Computed example of a mutant assay.
Amino acid sequence: MESMYFTEEHQLFRNSLRDFLQKEVVPHIEKWEKTGTIGRFIWNKFGEMGFLGISYPEKYGGLDLDIFYMIILLEELQRINSAGFAAAIWAHAYLAMTHLNAEGSEAIKEKYLSASITGDMIGCLCITEPFGGSDVAGMRTTAVKKGDNYVINGSKTFITNGIYSDYLIVAAKTNPELGNKGISIFLIDRDTPGVSATKLDKLGWRASDTGEIAFDNVTIPASNLMGEENKGFPYIMQHFALERLIMGVNAHARTQYALEYTLEYMSNREAFGKTIDRFQALRHKIADHYTELELCKTFNYNIAFRLDKGEYVVKEATMSKLKSTKVADDAIYDCLQFLGGYGYMEEYPLARLFRDSRLGPIGGGTSEILREIIAKMVIDGKDYKPATK
């Protein structure tokens, strides 16, 4: 099945990336997990290898490769067992940078997208609010036009790269009385007066810096508007398809890593005179998890193929995240159990995997919200439309 989507060039890229991660990233993971701070040097190393510019135009220093190179990047990042580090990379490269590329002016792209591709700048996407959660349309952050500037007030929370990023892509209401039709997208430099951030302490994703950000009369030039005023909501919804697919791919990749590790452990762990991979109760559970894994992978690759061809796959990407994150949680729960007491020990990978995976059904839209979005599409006939710039 994979040969349908992955060429020999893709496999060479995977091998190169895997070697890079083992040499340059893995030796630092334990430190970053403990400190919650990723060394700044690694961003430039990613940039030098071209890994941050996989999906972006050559004009700005990118490689302009097909979506399956992105899939490989996501899958390999999950294999080093630090979802926090992985999230920092993909939140920069595929949340913040996606908006830069899609809605940014030429001036913004030349300054920020180019520097993001080299790793000289790190970005974050600020949508979720303390009182809104998954309710994007209910956001309270405002951007008021005053002459040639906008003045922004409000707050955002659960923002990956929210502390150490250099710039912020921020959603705010420019016309609050219009509800979700009055949202716009802005670029804000970190050092702009009035921007402050507080680091959040999390159950998992320990390596990533997740922040709550406040905007107190933050004044930015009108040229920092991304795309058209009041078009922010369709921009966000359009890019949600990519974000949800990313989280679906992350989920199937960590499921595969967990199962592979657990099978290796089971083939060496003996009980009652035989290795525990010989016990039918365990074998059949493994069979069930592998079946669900392959279904998710096949579905996710198909969505990626369609997205790469320009199809609007919001429904399918939403389904991907909903199903794949549940499959991951269920599989990793059982994998931890199969390791017995060792599964509960920090020196084994399942404890961290268990914590990190639990964010899957929450971040990027909770499973409950995703079910309602799917219900609106399949029951009520709701038809979400792509944004037009």
Rank of each mutant, 00 (worst) to 15 (best):
T275G: 00
T275V: 06
I276P: 01
I276W: 02
D277H: 13
D277Y: 12
R278F: 12
R278A: 09
F279L: 12
F279S: 08
Q280E: 13
A281K: 08
L282C: 05
I286K: 00
A287W: 09
D288Q: 08
E292S: 07
E294A: 05
E294R: 06
C296W: 02
F299Y: 14
F299A: 03
N300I: 05
N302Q: 13
N302T: 10
I303P: 12
A304R: 05
A304W: 04
F305L: 03
R306S: 09
D308C: 10
K309Y: 02
K309T: 11
G310I: 05
E311K: 12
E311L: 09
Y312K: 01
V313M: 15
V313C: 15
K315N: 02
A317S: 15
A317F: 04
T325E: 04
D329T: 11
D330K: 12
I332F: 03
D334P: 00
C335Y: 08
L336K: 14
L336C: 09
L336A: 11
Q337K: 06
L339A: 08
Y344G: 10
E347C: 05
Y348T: 09
Y348W: 07
A351Q: 15
L353H: 00
F354H: 10
R355K: 15
D356C: 09
S357D: 12
S357K: 07
R358Y: 05
G363M: 13
G365L: 08
S367T: 13
S367N: 15
I369D: 14
L370A: 08
E372F: 01
I373T: 12
